[in-house]
Amino acid sequence: MPIALENVSYTYAPGTPWEHVALSEVTVRIEDGDFLGIVGPTGSGKSTLVQHMNGLLFPSDGRVVVDGDEVGSDRKALRDLRRKVGMVFQYPEHQLFEETVWADIAFGPKNLDLDEEEIARRVRWASESVGLPEDILERSPFELSGGQMRRVAIAGVLAMQGSVLILDEPTSGLDPRGRASLVEQLRALNQAGMTMVMVSHSMEDMALLVNRIVVLSEGRVALAGTKREVFTQLEALETLSLDVPRVTQVMLRLRGEGVPVPLDVMTVNEGIDALAAALRGEKDHASQ
């Protein structure tokens, strides 16, 4: 179910003193099975952009085409769209409200008129997908840690079994372990075929997860490409005061000192391999 934003512009509160252009002529295409990352400084239009992907916002200009159909205001079509394209907002745990974890995750599927058995199957699948232990399902979500509450909220969206999942800052505020395990779970969902879109300030998460990146600046696409293409555009990223992953920063510094390491190195394991290769390569050279 490809999603295409074609020349999308969006203006908040048009014709009022608060008028604000949030997006200008943005074109983005998401293919089936993609993992697209969206980065940009605060206020660059990232959240406005993703809200166009499941019809929470409609373009002021341009159009959004999902699976060949233009997104419009037809209510039935919109309901189908929101079922297929799930959205996990920032700090989604603030929206939990049911008495038990089970009820919270089952809330969406129940509204789909599914039978009990199917609902139970979905709740189990969704909670397993985000690593929630079974004994938690009967507890109140409000007794859980922040990281577990975050997972319950994500499971609730997963239980709708859409084909696209959009996540806005999914790891923000989690401790390093919670972050690492959620990253693993998101990767597994994508590998199982789910199309994913992630908004994040964390270049480390981008390095571990996405295959393509769109960089927004003041509502426009400033850069787009594979993550390697984007993370090697250092000057452009610096102008936008955006970072590259920490390991890439180390490689850059070493290159500055004349150490022959590649720059498209983004994770710790890649970094160790690249450094070992560079150091060994020189040693072999010297001993010849």
């Binding site: 401790d175 390093p176 180390v250 970094g271 160790i272 450094l275």
Partner: peptide
Amino acid sequence: IGLDVPVVTAL
């Protein structure tokens, strides 16, 4: 205890 180390330490 669920924490990590700085990237240069890991390298």
